[in-house]
Each structure stands twice: as C-alpha cells, then as structure tokens.
Write a protein that binds this DNA or RNA. Structure first.
Lengths: 344, 344
DNA sequence: AATTGGCACTCGTTGCGTTAGAGTGCTAAC
DNA sequence: GTTAGCACTCTAACGCAACGAGTGCCAATT
C-alpha cells in the first residue's frame, strides 16, 4: 500500500469517527488535502475495499472502516501522544484524593475514566495473592456465630460469619486468633492458604473447625479476585446513537454483568507491557464483536496486579482514548504503590 | 359510579395491562362478559373518561387507563391474595440460603425480586442505629496508618484507614481498643456516637486523635445508612417495549443511580403498615411520573428497619406484583430476625 | 501508466397521497 | 336505558415518484 492510500485511509477513518456517516469519494477528496480528484480517490478506495480495510454498507453509499481497518489505523496510521504533564497532575490529584482507601481509589478511577471517555469503564481489581496477612480476628457474635475478620497490609478487610457447631467462649476465640496471628501473620495470603491446607491435614486439634473455616475465608479472599471487577458508566452505552437499542446492546450489557468472560479476557492482559486493544471480533467474544475494548495493565510496586479499560463502539476517538487509558493505568498504579505515600 | 361501570373499568385495565394497546368498546364489550352492546359500553366509557379514569390517546383510538384509573384499580377493584404457603417456603429458602451473611441475603433478595417481577427492584438497607457495637479494633498497618474496624452484633463490619500524625505503637493501639471496647461496646451505635461526642469535649487525653477518628468512623457507619440502597435488574427496564428508549428512560436510570431522591421517598414508607404504591406522579418525583413504584417495609425483630420495592411501567400486573413485594418484605424480615435462627 | 471528467446506474431517503381499519360520537329506533 | 346504524376522524401501512448521494466504468487527457 502506497503512501497516498495510507493517507486516504487515515483521513477516511478520521472523518467517519467524527461524523459517524459513511464517507464518499467526493468528501474524502476534499478533506484529505491532496490535489486529487474524486475519481482517483474512488480507485484508491476500491483497492482499500479489496484489501478489506473498508466496506460500503450498500451499493451507493460511501465507505466505513472495517475492524481490520481500525486495527491498521491504530497500529500504523496514528501515533499517540502522552498526556500533558498538567493534565496528568490533575488526574492524579483526582485519583489520589481518596487515599488511603484503595477501594475508593478504584471507584473514583473508574468513574473518572468513564466520564472522560464517555464510554463504559472497568477495573480489574488488584490481585491479592501477594498481599500480606496482617491481622486476624475471631469475634463471637451470638451463641453459635463467629465473625472471622482478615486484614491485609494494604488495608483490605474481608469478613465472614461462621456457624459453629458448639458455642465457643471468647477466650477460646482469642486464643485461636493469637495462634493464628502468630502462625500465619506477616506472610502473603497465597502462602497462608497453602500452609493452612497442609496444617489441616496433619493436626486434628480441637481448633480444627475454626481453622477450617478460617482457611475457607482466606480462600474466598483469593477467590474474590476471580470475579473482582468494577464497572462504571453503563449508561454511557445508551448514548451511542448508532446501535441505540437493538439486541446487541442488550447482549453486551448482559456480558458486562456476568463479568466472567470479561474477567478472563482482561486477565490475559495483565502481563501486557502496555495498552492493548480488542477491535471487533478480536477478543473472540461474540457480544463484543461490534465494539472495541481498550485495556491497560497497572502496576503496584512494580508488580502487574490488575487491568483497567474502557469499552465502546468501534467508532471511538482512538487518538484520545488510548493515551487516556494508558495514562490512567500508570497514574492508578502510582497512586496505589507504597512509594506514593508521603514519607514522614 | 355504578357496579357495571366498575366492572368495565376493571376489565378495561386488565385488558390494557395484558395487551398494552388501547382498548376499544367492541373488544371491551366482548371480553367483559356482560350481555351488553358496544354502544352501551361507549356510553359508560365516556363517563369514565369524564371522571378521569381513562383517556383516549387520540380521537379514534380506544382508551387507556390514567394514573388515577390505576389508583382506583388497585384500591377498589382488585383484592390481592397472599402468596401460597408452598411458594412462600420456596422464596424463604432462596432468601435464607445465604444466611448468616446479611449483605448476601439482601443481594439475593433484590435479585430474586427483580427476576420474579421482571422489574427493577431495590432494597433500602436496614438501619444501623439500633445495632449494637460489638467489637472495635485498631490495627497498625504501616508507619502512620491505622486501620479501624467496627463490628456490630449483626455481623456488619465497617473499616477505615486512618492517617495518624505520629506513629503509634501496637501496644498503644491495643490499649486504645481495649478502652474503647470497655467504654462503648455493647451499646447501640447511635448511643456510642452521642457518648463519643460528649467524651471528646471533656477529655483532652493523648488518645484524642484516635478517638476522634473512631468517632468519625462510627458516624460514617450511620451516615452510610443515608444512602444505603441496593438496586438490581436495571436491565429489565430495557425490555419494556413501550418506552423502549426515549429520554424518560434515561432520566429514570439517572434518578435510580443518584439514589438520593429515591432514598428519601422510600424512607417515608418505612413506617407504613404495609405495601404502598406510588402511581405516576404520586411520588412527586418528575422522573417517576410515567412509572409505578411498589414498596413494602420490612421488620427485623419487630422494628421497621428498611423498605423493599420494585419500579416499573404504570402498566404492570398489579395483582401479581403487590403480593410478591409484600410477601418478600415479610420473608426478608423474618430471615433477618434473630428469632429466625435455629436455636441450639 | 496514472489521472481525470463524464455518464449511466444503483439504491436509500424523503415526501406525499391513498387506502384500510379501528374506533368514536351521535341519533334515532327499540 | 339500551341498541343498531352511520358519518366522521385519525392512525398506520402501503405504494410511488422524485431526489440525491455515490459508485463503477470508460474514454480522454496528461
């Protein structure tokens, strides 16, 4: 493909992104800024169609980009410019306003991303496997109910009500908690679970029951990761005039709701070095085939722990969206990292 | 209004609820089961229109009920039959499956209600004011960060990261927690807050800082009540063919999102003796004027603590919806009450 | 060999008149 | 008080023609 064709394809896609309509040869010739007639444009565009980058919705209409066309566009036709320093500072301020509560930070970040992009945004929550178990508590609530509380070094708290077969006295519970803290405290959650599993096989002490329950709670905490995803801005989807309602939108919303598939998709991006796009059917998920997903992993203390992203129509302003998602991911990681806390 | 008119109005509304179309005199005469001609029906319906119970969308169409018509319908034309025992047992089983975790119970209940009614459902979460503070913990996470954890007798846990000005040793924190538990434990949250406020004025001890923070956490727990609402089934709104998209739907979704107004509305129903309906504009909230809200308070241990409800188009199957909401409220209260727990 | 203007052709969109049907209100008869 | 009949109204659906945007192709031009 020669230079002129690339330029025309770029111009065509840009026009279609901003107008939403199919782009005709006449308009394209005018807007591309080339000293070229509409007829010549037609020839070139016909080649682009043969190559699969654009299609005509019907015989006598202009062309619109195919997913392949968008892919080529983002890969080879545009170069994204990083966010300006002042803009970054603004975002960071907005994200960081909710420190030190990590959950609130995540919520604020999705809300912000959705607002800035006018798209649905989501965050794959940070993995907990490497968080360190800081504290465990067993609290007697009523006769046969014990509340188990796990606290990690990042301030995440998970709790669960346990039913016990026989009433346990507060002193037994305190003892159990002390033992627990001594044995398992200060170690990564993942290790704790493994250790618990092993210990349970060996010992058959009277604490079995509470140990077992605690282990399950620990497992649940890790398990929660497997469906930990925050979504914001679903309403933005209703504002897309193109696919206004249609069954595809329904399908998409349901997919977002169910999370499972999306989470699997996102988890494949955690190790990516940078921003990553799934345009149209590239994700392999049927309900996404009319949409584009832009994702970027974020790192906490150097470890890639989660992914943020936005989801919208194929026709989205990529040159703005991509740096926004990328930048937000970096800033989020920065905000959540230990080093971000002001030293005393 | 005579008996026949009542019968016709009832029949008209039932037909419109099931078909969604305006109901004409011919159809109505046939379906009402009266030995009456269409012409007679026309006369009666004309009176009903004068009385404001029905309107004709345009000159040569049948009639559809007005909000006033629906109001009369639910007040005087139908009598709701309670849910069957076996059905109640089924629901209770589904609700209770998630005990003893109250939060999960609430979530399961909204999901169930939404699924059964095919409407948006929501729950005003139980008020915490009367819950008893069972346990407080202060945990040192890092240099200047302390995690405060409050536990109530119902197993609700709230936590918050506090920044302290100077590093606090674990022993100081333990001491603080012990003091806290001894002074304030076992009392209703509301009292705890009041007491804290008072104590803070008097003492100027070194614990001031942590006390103050703890008080704020306690306040936050109560405050959280003020916007505590769960929503499920927003997607159901998209299935309403009538107002398919339109700006009203958007407006409604936004209102649901913002919660504030809805929460205020619902709070007005906590003291109601039973199920309560807001048909059309009756709520005074403009975005609800094309919808009906059905709410019912639920009681925990005899105290009215929250409200559940559904939201849908004016044209909803009231004779099914009303007992469903009412029954679910009762069962939810039952599930959450202490007495529902199997005694040892 | 690439480019361009011209031209016939296609097809979606828009606007308009026509028709069919449903339903009403009214009146006169029962 | 009820009913049948009838003229009238209004919407929804359909068909049709005009319009215009856009294409593809060909022959002429550079």
């Amino acid at each position: 493909m020669d230079d002129r064709a690339r330029h025309l394809l770029k111009s065509l896609i840009e026009q279609h992104i901003s107008s939403g309509h199919p782009v005709g040869s006449r308009q394209l010739a005018k807007d591309a800024g080339l000293a070229i007639s509409a007829a010549t444009v037609r020839n070139v565009v016909a080649d682009l169609e043969d190559a699969g980058y654009v299609v005509a919705p019907h015989t006598s209409a202009g062309r619109i980009p195919t997913p392949l066309g968008y892919r080529f566009f983002v890969d080879s036709l545009i170069h994204v410019t990083p966010l300006s320093g002042s803009f970054q500072r603004m975002l960071l301020q907005r994200i960081g306003a909710h420190l030190p509560d990590a959950e609130e930070v995540l919520q604020a970040t999705t809300a912000m991303l959705s607002e800035l992009t006018h798209l649905v945004s989501f965050i794959r929550v940070p993995k907990r496997a490497h968080q360190i178990l800081r504290h465990v508590d067993f609290i007697a609530l009523r006769e046969n109910e014990v509340l188990a509380i796990f606290v990690t070094d990042r301030g995440e708290v998970e709790n669960r009500l346990l039913r016990t077969e026989s009433p346990l006295s507060p002193s037994v519970l305190t003892q159990a908690a002390n033992f627990f803290n001594a044995s398992y405290g200060g170690r990564p959650l993942q290790e704790v679970i493994a250790q618990l599993e092993e210990d349970l096989l060996r010992s058959r002490a009277e604490m079995d029951q509470i140990l077992r329950n605690a282990m399950e709670l620990g497992k649940e905490m890790l398990m929660a990761d497997q469906q930990g995803m925050m979504v914001d801005g679903e309403l933005q989807l209703l504002d897309i005039p193109d696919l206004a309602d249609g069954p595809r939108l329904r399908e998409l919303l349901r997919t977002i709701r169910q999370k499972r598939e999306l989470v699997m998709l996102l988890d494949g991006c955690v190790q990516s070095s940078s921003v990553r796009l799934f345009i149209g059917g590239e994700s392999g998920l049927a309900p996404l085939s009319d949409f584009t997903l832009v994702s970027a992993p974020y790192h906490v203390d150097g470890e890639p722990v989660g992914v943020i992203g936005v989801l919208g129509p194929l026709r989205m302003p990529y040159p703005e969206i991509i740096p926004l998602v990328d930048g937000t991911a970096r800033l989020l990681g920065q905000a959540l990292s230990r080093t971000s806390l002001p030293s005393p």
